[in-house]
Design a protein around this nucleic acid. Structure first.
Ligand SMILES: [Mn+2]
Ligand SMILES: [Mn+2]
Ligand SMILES: [Zn+2]
Ligand SMILES: [Zn+2]
Lengths: 147, 147
DNA sequence: TTCCTTAATAGTAACTATTATCATTTATAA
DNA sequence: TTATAAATGATAATAGTTACTATTAAGGAA
């Protein structure tokens, strides 16, 4: 059931630009990039095409935890690491883990269809700047309430 | 550095109700639940407290991929499965995997601080209803463009 | 107890990412 | 060509969440 996509200039440019990058841009970042070559393109068009293109399997949509949606010109399923400081997202190639996860077909009577593994931490550039991170602490009333 | 939380009726009720559940409610679902006992509570108060309580380590905030934030009365780190049909979220106890993931301390020069593993698929209740799911297909222009 | 300080609340406005609407344009196949 | 329907640009709407602010109320000190 072919969706019969039309090869519009906007659509071709979005795929082309996204595939040049090894970053994982948001819809808005892609909008800014394609706007350089197609100044009249609208943000809605970018969103609509990113959705259609990922549904069609031509690009990949990344739903990262707790942050905005990102897109990936690489279609093969792989893992990602996100820097908690600068939000940068990089690929994490872990074929060993990929194999283990793919072998899990059921959990708690669920039929597993997708497995998402996402790391977060500090990227090489942010590692130095951020010396320490504070730990959460349990307050007085709760310590008693819970005990 | 204790945040010196005050034991307000609203705050205590939110923790109490959340801990009764083994579901993973959204902020709005928690709002509806606590409203039964504290009708004047505001949605903003629920959001504010869920944030504070999770920062303090008294509850857990779940940032699920591509869907709204959920909360967990269980504080211990564990995995989740989400039904792609009814959105239900269940715990996935996989101590074997947890150990493997925790042993990964670095990827691509990132210092890993958090590991999130999330499954999605069909829950036992939805397994029967949803017979088949359609596959995405590559359209004509892209097949040539890519080749 | 009563009083004081300041955290927390209710109510509401604002914000951000994303989706929907719709009149106009344009790719494509006949 | 021309007809058709997909796609666009502009803009409005929506959803989830956060910010603001006057008022209330924990909880420690007197
Ligand atoms: Mn990637
Ligand atoms: Mn859980
Ligand atoms: Zn960084
Ligand atoms: Zn279900």
């Amino acid at each position: 059931m072919n969706r019969n996509l039309r090869a519009t200039a906007q659509r071709k440019l979005i795929v082309e630009e996204l595939r040049k990058l090894n970053s994982h841009p948001t819809a808005n970042e892609i909008y800014e990039i394609v706007r350089a070559k197609l100044p009249k393109i609208s943000l809605g068009t970018v969103y609509r095409n990113l959705e259609i293109l990922s549904e069609s399997g031509l690009i990949q949509k990344l739903e990262m935890a707790g942050s905005q949606r990102r897109f990936d010109g690489t279609v093969e399923d792989h893992f990602h690491v996100k820097c908690i400081s600068c939000e940068r997202v990089s690929d994490a190639e872990l074929p060993f883990l990929k194999e283990i996860l793919d072998s899990i077909e059921g959990v708690n009577d669920y039929k597993i269809m997708q497995r998402r593994l996402e790391f977060s931490g500090l990227c090489p550039k942010c590692r130095n700047k951020n010396g320490e991170m504070e730990q959460p602490e349990v307050s007085g009333w709760e310590r008693h309430e819970a005990g």
